[in-house]
Amino acid sequence: MMAINRYRLRHLVRHGHRGAMRTARLLANTDKLLGVILLGNNLINAAAATLVTVITIRVFGQGELALGMATLAVTFVILVFSEVTPKVIGATYPEKIAFAASFVLTPLLKLAYPVVWFINLFVQGLLRLLRLRPSGENQDSVLGIEELRTLVLESGKLLPSAHRGILLNLLDLEEISVDDLMTPRSQMEAIDIEAEADTLLRQLSTSHHTRLPLYRGHLDDIVGMLHVRDAAYHMRSGELDAEALMQSRQEAYFIPSGTPLFTQLRHFQENQRRVGLVVDEYGELMGLVTLEDILEEIVGEFTTQAPAQLSGFIIQPDGSWLVEGASQVRSINRKLGLHLPLEGPKTLNGLVLEHLEDIPEPGTTLKIAGYAVEIVQVQERAVKVARIFPIAGNVDTANG
């Protein structure tokens, strides 16, 4: 009864399983259930001990040796046949035993209810005297995020690995913010409405995105978002200019820095948006995050490109990877199967600078979380390209 899985029990109750329903009613009053079980258990054990004592006295007399041997014998029999063996069987097959036992325990509880009620009066009084309040069944059934994560991890063959990964990613959404996934400001593709018409046409016709930010002069002056489909008419008619773009634009949607992904997913749904611009506490543009970015964090990449051609990642003949310094650490871990630290800097460049506490020279090699990282190119006081060796210890740490 006590070893049965409460969640599976509720599932069977919802599906109308009679044994499960009877067991659930018994477990709803644990004190009464334990009362009737222990009443019968102790009554039988005491009766067995008394009976063995009487038989021993009549057969062997009142000798101390005979009574001692009889005590040991009855203790052995009770332990093996009444205590250990039944409890091991019950713990191994809780459902089968509990459902069958419920058919016996339910009428027994009704018959012995006055005795059980009388015993529980003393039990409850003693608990109050000790200032103890037994936790209810509802408190025992509440699981936190970490308990749910452990439950998913230990589900074994009950869940396919892909489903298990999705559930774990979903549980992590509250611990990840938009800052971890956003496309940094320096890598954003945006349109300057003050650019020449030829430049605008070329940029729109070669863009790989369907929605692009519009700005006037510099990125801090965002004037809206443009859906490339809405600009198609002006592109065909040759009337593509700042006025046409302003007519086709949509209002920009801004996201505060540090917003948890799960919260932002709900905001995207409530506001019917797919793209948001991340801003810091001063209103400065930090980057861009899309609905697809969040979905990929849950279910994995949607890209159809070959692994060797993933954006920002180029595999080398020796098994290492050339990675752009502006790549997100979380994206590197997911795409390359690494375990670089996620606390602290969000990009590979920031991670390298934090470890070295200086701007490195090309050729510098360092170890981060056991992975060898070689600086290949440095540009404008930032790591532009680095080589990562997936196998820890592949290259010794040295300065070039």
Rank of each mutant, 00 (worst) to 15 (best):
P160F: 03
P160H: 15
S161I: 14
S161P: 04
S161L: 12
S161D: 15
H163I: 10
H163F: 11
G165R: 14
G165C: 09
I166G: 07
I166E: 09
I166C: 05
L167N: 13
N169Y: 06
N169S: 15
D172P: 04
L173P: 13
L173F: 05
L173Q: 08
E174Q: 12
E174C: 08
E174G: 12
E175P: 05
E175Q: 15
I176Q: 07
D179N: 13
D180T: 06
M182Q: 05
M182I: 05
M182H: 10
M182K: 09
T183F: 05
P184W: 15
R185Q: 11
Q187A: 13
M188G: 07
M188S: 10
M188H: 05
E189S: 14
E189H: 09
E189P: 07
E189K: 10
A190K: 08
I193E: 10
A195D: 03
A195L: 01
E196C: 00
E196T: 02
A197Q: 00
A197S: 06
D198E: 01
D198A: 00
T199F: 00
L201Q: 03
R202S: 00
R202P: 00
L204C: 02
S207L: 01
H208S: 07
H208Y: 06
H208N: 14
T210H: 05
R211G: 06
R211I: 13
L212Q: 04
L212M: 09
L212W: 02
L214W: 04
L214R: 04
Y215F: 14
Y215A: 11
G217S: 15
G217N: 02
H218I: 08
H218L: 09
L219D: 03
L219K: 13
L219W: 05
D220M: 06
D221P: 02
D221W: 11
D221E: 12
D221Q: 14
I222G: 02
V223F: 04
G224Y: 08
M225Y: 03
L226R: 03
V228C: 09
D230E: 14
D230N: 12
D230H: 10
A232V: 12
A232T: 12
Y233P: 13
H234N: 14
H234M: 13
H234V: 07
M235F: 08
M235V: 12
R236D: 10
S237W: 05
S237Y: 07
G238Q: 02
L240Q: 01
L240D: 01
D241I: 01
